[in-house]
Simulated scan of single mutants.
Amino acid sequence: MRALVHRNASKPAWLIFGLVLLATAFWGWPLIDSPRFENHFFGLFWYSMIALAAAFWAFPAEQRVYDGVLERRICLFGLIPVRTRQIPLSAFTRVMLDQEPNVIGPDSIWVCLADDGDARFVFAHYRATTAGVRKGVEQVHRLAELTGLPFAQSDPEA
């Protein structure tokens, strides 16, 4: 079985964000430890925002393509699958490499599976740097080869 997997939890930015969350939790501790009631209120707000960010961080997505199926799994800490959604590849007609326009310049590269309408499924996302564009182009070619879907050619800028 040939498969192509893209894990968001394997990116260094995911781990760095987790460390930043931990650092902000330590940094906000004086708000809770303070004898002043006003600081407790701000501490409660501070930690509720950290808890919300941690909830989003703790459940990264993972996309995989194998045996004619596109599968997206939401995993606890990138390890334990919590929710799995499978879509047959027959629902898509092409593989695309899309670039998000930005006022200053190109911002993001999106590797997508698309149908004849406006529906798209984002398989991978990269920053629009030279290395990111190269990774996106490599990923879209591997995805097109594995799925058998045609690649809708575009020319992303670095």
Rank of each mutant, 00 (worst) to 15 (best):
R2E: 11
A3R: 15
N8F: 03
A9S: 15
S10P: 00
K11N: 15
A13H: 06
L15W: 05
L15Q: 11
I16C: 05
G18Y: 09
G18L: 05
L21D: 01
L21E: 01
L22D: 00
T24F: 14
T24Y: 07
T24H: 04
W27R: 00
W27V: 04
G28F: 10
W29P: 04
P30C: 11
P30M: 09
P30I: 06
D33F: 04
F37A: 13
F37D: 11
E38Q: 08
E38F: 08
F41L: 11
G43L: 04
G43Y: 01
F45W: 15
W46A: 11
S48Y: 01
S48I: 00
M49Y: 00
I50D: 02
I50K: 02
A51Y: 10
A51P: 02
A51S: 13
F56N: 12
F56Q: 09
F59M: 07
F59P: 02
P60D: 11
P60F: 07
P60E: 13
A61G: 06
E62R: 08
Q63H: 06
R64W: 03
R64D: 08
V65Y: 08
V65P: 08
V65C: 00
Y66A: 14
D67G: 01
V69L: 14
L70E: 03
L70A: 15
L70M: 12
R72N: 07
R72D: 10
R72W: 00
F77H: 05
L79E: 09
I80M: 07
I80R: 09
P81S: 11
V82L: 07
V82A: 09
R83D: 03
R83V: 15
T84W: 01
Q86S: 14
Q86D: 07
L89G: 03
L89S: 01
F92M: 05
R94N: 06
M96P: 01
L97C: 03
D98R: 15
D98P: 05
E100L: 15
P101G: 10
P101C: 10
N102G: 15
V103G: 12
V103W: 03
V103F: 11
I104K: 15
G105V: 08
G105Y: 12
P106A: 09
S108Q: 15
S108V: 14
I109Y: 05
W110P: 09
V111D: 01
C112S: 10
C112M: 09
G117S: 08
G117P: 04
G117D: 07
A119F: 13
A119E: 12
F121V: 04
F121C: 11
V122H: 02
V122F: 07
F123T: 06
F123N: 05
H125P: 06
Y126K: 08
R127I: 00
A128N: 11
A131S: 14
V133P: 05
R134E: 14
R134N: 07
K135F: 05
K135Q: 13
K135S: 13
V140I: 02
V140K: 06
R142G: 03
R142D: 07
A144I: 06
A144F: 10
A144Y: 03
A144H: 05
T147C: 01
T147R: 05
G148M: 06
F151C: 00
F151S: 00
A152T: 02
A152P: 04
Q153L: 15
E157S: 13
A158R: 13
A158K: 13
A158D: 12
